[in-house]
Design a protein around this nucleic acid. Structure first.
Lengths: 337, 337
DNA sequence: AGAATTGCTGCATACCTATGCAATAAATTT
DNA sequence: AAATTTATTGCATAGGTATGCAGCAATTCT
């Protein structure tokens, strides 16, 4: 019950606590014999160093706070898993916070600070510039993942959503559609804004109008939005959805009323979650470069820890278009003759 | 940069650190005036208590370790989110660990211990009895979620998988199938064992043989297993899959070769993940009582913290069968005449 | 008025590890 | 043999909070 401390080891061996501490951290100055004696006893007595005490002493908690919203959206569990296992491998531990609405992130910050997190990673949520400043005052570096602050008060790593939107627009333009639409994600997210504006701009440059339906990055919203689109007299034949889940909802809505996806109507998503490849959907989409985004944000964060505070550092990583069968194929020019 | 401590507050006000500490914890013995003065200054100077120091002093970290494997399987993100938000609301913080293979859980334990977690929750992974003992020696209570140890060395909360298996067997028996099969999940998980054995036993009691294909709780495995089943000469017309993802894979495999699910072949899953309700699948399944399981495990864990160590406490919560359209409907007895 | 009680605050220390500096013993140099 | 260097260990303290006990002043009681 009573935990074994380094003092216990010292007493048992009749040496000082400092020697024990140094022996356990493999300090060269400690005689090999002593080191072995200590390490052996530590193992035998089941000694576990107390991270709290160590943190207090070293002023380093070795803790990274991860704040994540939309944890249940299929894209993020993967991110979370990768993040934690990579951090573990590098000797960091993860303190997890979850949040629904955007404004609540600020409320979580005090907790992050209490536990002296050495760094903070915020996924799919934003941070008020006020809090960004508080963090910077405390010397706690932050990196936003897949979101960035309008005022550029924090560093961030994102997919190149604007590039992605253009890619989709060009792709759809290239296969003879006539009525374009966008089903949106949650408003006031940088992700949604960037995907939409780039897509729309490109199409307008090409002389097309873009219909629009609201959404919120969920299946249900995609389903409902698609129903509304299909009910229109000029219902679109090319639809870009803010993310894959939305697109999948849209596909199901189309199918329900017998509209064939990939022939009568084209649908494109964003993310390339596993379900996009499922047989029932075969969704053409933009693949987010998740691994690269993760590596990049970790690199930025860990570099900033202990070093000069990184001011604001934005990084946008391009995604790739993955062709499946939810978009009309180009009519073959040469028929078999 | 230099964090504000309670000593700083004390100096600033010309009072003792202990008074500050007590004032901030709303100790009744401190004069109201003093309390307000302190709390006001704390706010003004942006004081944040140091959780590390507090833990050291109180011998309570207020940290709950959560070890989770299969984080990317759609069932668990929901669990994780619920767990963390409920724990937060109760004043606990979450230290997250992820693991792939089962044997690695043991390797994570030392880290959990270093950070003095007050309790440990292990989801969809098991624990060697050796480690269970180590934890109990340290006085750290553990609860397994959705898995239980064969030797009953730890407490656990599970869905009543055996009951669920029987439910499925009875349901399928009730609608005139003739050839039954089971697509398995990862072997050596209690979840898979219980679902399979109860299902199989019930069917054998009714005089049926049960075909079997291996799997591992993934879409791909379900897809492949279904292909193998369909290739058989006596391919089954009623298939119970170890979980929903597997079932969804199976459905896609069937559909690919034109076999109609819900008329030619019946498929049942387990979990009731969101995708089971998606239009493309409409999967009949056993709904895991997730909320109840979460509440139950938290209750067990938190009760055990500080109190007498809970020995081994198993709790099985029944799931409900959700009827959708992936199972053949009973032929209507009365035709419209 | 003296004694007892109540209200409020401070002193001192525990919690456990890491680490700068001093001290000692042993080995090497001159 | 004396002086210097090297190897090894210990002493003392910091880090920030919580808390048992003692102290003091003000109030109430007899």
């Amino acid at each position: 019950m009573a935990r074994v401390t380094s003092v216990d080891l010292a007493q048992e061996l009749g040496i000082s606590q400092s020697t024990v501490s140094r022996a356990l951290s493999n300090d060269i100055r400690i005689a090999t014999k002593t080191r072995e004696k200590v390490q052996h006893l530590a193992l035998k007595m089941g000694y576990t160093p107390n991270a709290m005490a160590r943190s207090l002493s070293t002023q380093q908690s070795k803790l990274i706070g991860i704040v994540m919203s939309e944890m249940t959206s299929p894209f993020y569990p993967f991110v979370l898993e990768k993040l934690t296992s990579k951090l573990h491998a590098l000797g960091w531990r993860v303190l997890l916070f979850s949040t629904d609405a955007q404004h609540e992130v600020d409320d979580l910050l005090p907790l992050v600070l209490e536990y002296q997190c050495d760094g903070l990673l915020i996924a799919s949520a934003s941070l008020s510039s006020h809090m960004a400043e508080t963090l910077s005052r405390h010397g706690t570096p932050v990196v936003l993942f897949n979101r960035y602050a309008a005022d550029a008060s924090s560093s961030a790593v994102c997919c190149d959503n604007r590039g992605g939107g253009r890619l989709v627009a060009d792709y759809l333009l290239g296969r003879s559609h006539s009525r374009y639409a966008y089903i949106a994600g949650r408003e006031n997210t940088s992700t949604n804004r960037d995907r939409e504006s780039s897509y729309t701009t490109r199409l307008e440059q090409a002389g097309f109008m873009v219909q629009r339906e609201a959404g919120n990055f969920t299946y249900e919203a995609g389903f409902a939005a698609m129903q509304r689109l299909l009910a229109r007299s000029d219902s679109p034949d090319a639809i870009f959805c803010a993310n894959d889940i939305t697109a999948i909802g849209a596909i199901d809505a189309a199918r329900e009323v017998g509209v064939k996806v990939g022939t009568q109507v084209s649908i494109v998503g964003f993310d390339d979650i596993p379900m996009a490849a499922w047989g029932a959907y075969n969704l053409t989409t933009i693949r987010q470069p998740v691994e690269a985004m993760i590596d990049s944000s970790l690199q930025m964060l860990l570099e900033a820890i202990g070093n000069a505070p990184l001011g604001s550092n934005l990084r946008f990583i391009p995604g790739a278009l993955i062709e499946r069968s939810s978009v009309k194929q180009i009519a073959k020019r040469k028929a078999k003759s």
